[in-house]
Amino acid sequence: MRNLDETDLEILSLLAENARLPYSEIGDTVGLSGPAVSDRVKRLQEAGVINNFTIDISRSQLRAGVPVFIQLEIPASAHETVRERLRNADGVEHVFVTSEGELWFYARVEAQNVRMWIDSLLDDIEIQDYSVTLVDELEWTPAIDGVEFALTCAECSNTVDNEGETTRIDGEIYHFCCPSCLARFEERYQRLEEGV
């Protein structure tokens, strides 16, 4: 797998602005043909750089309730359970985990029922404390400009450059910085499969 070049980054930037932009229009902008853009997008998908194409919905037009930002203080042992519950909860749009291990999330809920909603959502979780902040405005602007992209090695987390290797294992694509990392990963993966 070679490094992402300027054309790849420009294609990603255009798709971040409008995921429905025709490949021919992207090609006109970046100086490639539509099929060449299609090939690059397919390669970016196979490399796991593009996960899916989506739309930007104005949720304030569709969902009742007020926007709130909630910060939870919970035991570290409950994080994964709470994250899973938040991912599946109606009204929750974004979940964040800070570097300090705190769990924050953005949701739209009925103003008079915020406390009851949190209590019912996390009824069996020991909540040490939480705060609710009413959100006045929200702007979500995914962009790739000014960000340096690099694939990371699945084994050692180093940057994968043009000397790296990419392989598919059980349908998942993994990137490695060198053949030895690939070999170590495959060996460990095989041992885990045999132990199951």
Rank of each mutant, 00 (worst) to 15 (best):
M116Y: 11
G164V: 06
T98G: 00
A47P: 04
A111G: 00
L134K: 14
L86Q: 08
L121M: 12
I144L: 13
V49G: 07
C177Y: 10
S77M: 07
R168L: 06
N158Y: 13
T166R: 12
R108D: 02
N88P: 02
D124P: 05
A154W: 15
H79Q: 04
A64T: 05
V109D: 01
V147N: 09
Q128E: 12
I74N: 03
I125E: 07
A111I: 07
T54H: 11
C153P: 12
A143D: 13
T133V: 10
L121A: 07
E84F: 14
V82R: 05
I125T: 11
D170W: 12
C156S: 09
A64K: 04
S157E: 14
G101H: 04
N52K: 14
G171P: 04
Y106G: 00
S131P: 02
G171A: 01
L134G: 03
S157H: 13
I55R: 09
F149L: 15
E172V: 09
E100W: 09
P179Q: 02
A89I: 05
F96G: 02
F105S: 03
S180Y: 00
P67R: 05
V92H: 06
I70P: 01
I57G: 01
D136R: 12
R168K: 09
I70G: 00
Q71V: 05
E165Y: 13
W104T: 00
R108T: 06
S60C: 02
A143P: 03
V132E: 08
G65V: 04
E102N: 03
D129Q: 11
D129L: 08
N162D: 13
N52W: 15
E84N: 10
R108A: 02
R85A: 07
L121V: 08
N113T: 07
T159L: 10
N113K: 09
E163P: 02
G48D: 13
L151K: 14
L134A: 04
L72H: 05
V97S: 04
L62C: 02
E102G: 00
S99V: 08
N158P: 03
W104P: 00
A150K: 12
Q128C: 04
D119C: 03
D123E: 10
P142Q: 12
G48E: 13
V109K: 04
C177W: 09
R83I: 11
V95R: 07
T167Y: 01
Y106E: 02
G164N: 06
R83S: 06
N113Y: 14
Q45T: 13
R63M: 11
R83F: 08
Q45V: 14
W117M: 02
Q112M: 06
T167V: 10
R168G: 00
N113C: 04
C178D: 08
H79P: 00
D129I: 07
I70D: 01
I125V: 14
D170P: 01
A154E: 14
D145T: 15
V97P: 01
D124H: 13
Q128M: 07
I125P: 04
H175C: 00
D119N: 10
T159F: 15
H79M: 02
G101N: 06
T159H: 10
I74L: 03
I127F: 10
L62N: 03
K42D: 14
S99R: 11
D124R: 08
L134Q: 12
S60H: 10
I127P: 03
D124G: 01
I55W: 15
I55L: 10
H175S: 01
E100L: 08
D123T: 09
D90H: 10
V135K: 04
S77V: 08
F149H: 14
R108P: 03
F96S: 02
V114D: 07
C153R: 09
R87P: 06
